[in-house]
């Protein structure tokens, strides 16, 4: 590389419309690639540097803060209609580094890295002294509440048997002793009323996801469970490009390339924002 003048980055205001445009592309990228949990929305742009890129274009180096919304990533509700989770529900923030290429007026994500963390207990206590904090997803009471709620939901269902996809958040309340959980489910090829061995049920090729909120309340001599699930419209199969250039549609093909749904992972922290592979 011939020695030339040092690259100089362009100073841009963090609230400049061009910076905001880049940040919104970054947030869109997060929500299309996040593997679990909730959609995030832009809260603040921390830093921006715009580097010239040879032979053409510019690279935006961006640091942004996001906040968790109440929309699950599998929920098709547009981000603009999603509510930011209030502090009293124990908010979660995302801290992201992005590099985006701007060429011909279009942004492309080159690099993305996000970490998420829940608000501190002190902050939650300041706004709501009695509000429950986020609980570990592998807490036995959480696991039991999800199991009881899903069993109750399937028992009332006259359609497909739904299987757990992930536990998304949980809170424990001491008085009365109760466990609040939110979890994602997916329809299987079994009929709920006829299931004898859930292990033999398979997820539908045309994925149908749902999102449930449940409260399990402990009582003397038993427990009460209240569960509400929203089942989203089916996600049609999208032809996937094959190595030989053909396109295939079949049950082995991932239906939604943007969102990969892993098996429930109780060892993940309560507020993991996992961003998938980056586009380079």
């Amino acid at each position: 590389v011939p020695v030339g003048p040092a690259l100089v980055y362009r100073e841009l205001d963090c609230d400049d419309p061009e910076t905001e445009q880049a940040a919104l592309v970054a947030v869109d990228y997060i929500n299309n690639h996040v593997l679990r949990g909730y959609k995030h929305t832009l809260n603040q742009i921390d830093k921006v540097k715009v580097w010239p890129r040879r032979p053409m274009g510019e690279v935006f180096e961006l640091e942004i803060d996001t906040l968790e919304t109440t929309c699950h990533v599998l929920d098709p509700t547009p981000l603009a209609n999603c509510t930011v989770r209030p502090q009293m529900q124990h908010a979660v923030e995302g801290d992201c580094d992005f590099r985006l290429l701007k060429q011909d007026g279009q942004f492309t994500v080159l690099f993305a890295k996000c970490d998420s963390s829940p608000d501190s207990a002190e902050d939650v206590r300041k706004v709501c002294p009695q509000c429950p904090l986020l609980a570990p997803l592998n807490d036995t009471r959480v696991v039991h509440a999800v199991d009881a709620a899903l069993t109750a939901f399937n028992a009332q269902s006259n359609g497909s048997y739904f299987r757990l996809v992930e536990v998304s958040r949980a809170q424990l309340t001491p008085l009365p002793p109760s466990t609040y959980v939110e979890f994602a489910v997916a329809a299987t090829d079994c009929v709920a009323a006829e299931v004898t061995d859930p292990a033999k049920c398979n997820l539908l090729a045309e994925k149908q996801y749902g999102f449930c909120k449940a409260t399990l309340t402990e009582k003397v001599g038993g427990e009460d469970v209240a569960v509400t699930c929203t089942v989203f419209q089916t996600q049609p199969l999208i032809p996937q490009p094959q190595p030989d250039g053909t396109e295939a549609v079949g049950p082995t093909v991932v239906a939604d390339p943007g969102v990969t749904v892993p098996e429930a992972s109780p060892d993940l922290p309560a507020a993991a924002l996992v961003v998938g592979p980056v586009v380079v």
């Binding site: 841009l12 929305t41 809260n43 603040q44 502090q87 608000d119």
Partner: peptide, 27 residues
């Protein structure tokens, strides 16, 4: 700023290029 004593200097807007505005709340 160094100015002549008899020249009035208009107070310009305070520039805070970064970080940008907080849209919801800071945690």
């Amino acid at each position: 700023k160094v100015v002549q004593p008899d020249v009035a200097v208009a107070a310009g807007p305070v520039v805070h290029p970064c970080p940008g505005r907080i849209r919801h709340f800071k945690i």
